[in-house]
Amino acid sequence: MRKKILAVVLTGILAVGALTGCGAKSDSKDSAKASDDKKITVAASATPHAEILEEAKSLLEKKGYTLEVKVFDDYVQPNNVVESGEFDANYFQHIPYLEQFNEEKGTHLAIAGKIHYEPFGIYPGTKKDLKDIAKGDKIAVPNDTTNEARALLLLQDNGIIKLKDGAGIKATVNNIVENPYDVEIVELEAAQVPRVVDETAFVVLNGNYALEANYTVSKDALAYEKSDSEAAKTYVNVIAVKEGNEDSEKIKALVDVLKSDEIKQFIEEKYQGAVIAYDGE
């Protein structure tokens, strides 16, 4: 009888221990999940995106969130790591590029917030004035589809080339129907364009790469897109997430902070017109 009683007691102790252990494990998982929900991971271009995100960190901390930013120097991996779930969001691209990437790569990325606009500009290379353009001059442009089209449209707006009617934001060099100066369009990966200023007459730069090359629109651009242009709406830079995550609490907190008056003031003071906060929805 004593052996049976002892066995029952031991069984009870083990059962309680097992339940207690399970409870601790569950609490640990819940704690880890809660911690993850308060951490926001964002893949970004260095300038201005990562700089703006750094400014946003303290504002997010006040809301109870920790922001972790990783800088990428290309336009592909930031989308891949969001699609895979490795990162919560990215901040580096405009809407046409996002839409084209989804179409070409079969990804499922969505816009969570429209944050800022970077005027595209024509900057001096070996020549300092567009009036000095001559036969056979070289002009460097980004080679990714949407940004090349944007560069070509800007060249068209300034009378350097003429594109086929309707080419729009999908324009390529094959759509050039008039080239009175017989310019050579040098197509390069966007990050490489600023590096050929000593080899080409002019360069057409994305806003972030212009900043990295120490150019500003107001001081250095020979021509640029205007802040009230259709381009401002078309090429607004966005926070992108995987479809279905647009309305998560931490993503909404991130977007709210990036559209706050504090961040708008930071953008205005730091970039002096090279980056413009987007006021639309």
Rank of each mutant, 00 (worst) to 15 (best):
G280D: 13
K138Q: 15
A56V: 02
N147Y: 10
T41L: 04
I111Q: 07
N102E: 09
L60M: 04
Y224T: 09
A240C: 01
F72V: 03
H116T: 02
D144P: 00
K33Y: 13
K39P: 04
V275N: 08
S26V: 13
I267A: 07
S31N: 14
V71F: 06
E225P: 01
K4Y: 10
N245H: 11
T66E: 15
A140T: 08
E230H: 02
D129V: 06
Y271E: 08
A15W: 12
K270R: 14
A18I: 11
E268F: 00
D88Q: 07
D182G: 10
L60A: 03
V236W: 06
E262I: 00
Q265F: 02
A24D: 13
E268G: 01
A110L: 02
A151Y: 06
V141K: 05
D157T: 02
E54H: 06
V275H: 08
L155Y: 11
V197Y: 09
D73H: 08
N79W: 07
K170G: 11
L19S: 13
P180W: 10
D228K: 02
E83F: 02
T11Q: 10
E178L: 02
A50T: 06
I251R: 03
L211A: 03
T126P: 10
K25L: 14
G159M: 09
A210I: 00
K127P: 14
F101P: 07
I122R: 10
S260W: 12
E187V: 00
F92K: 07
E268T: 13
P96M: 03
T200Q: 14
P96S: 04
Y91G: 05
P124D: 12
Q265D: 15
F101S: 11
R195Y: 11
A34M: 09
K252L: 02
I267W: 09
K128C: 06
L153A: 02
A210M: 03
K164T: 14
A231R: 08
V238G: 03
L222C: 06
D30K: 13
G125D: 14
Y215W: 08
G106F: 07
A34I: 05
V204N: 12
Y123E: 11
L10M: 09
K128S: 15
V8W: 11
D27I: 04
S45F: 08
N90H: 14
N79A: 07
N147D: 15
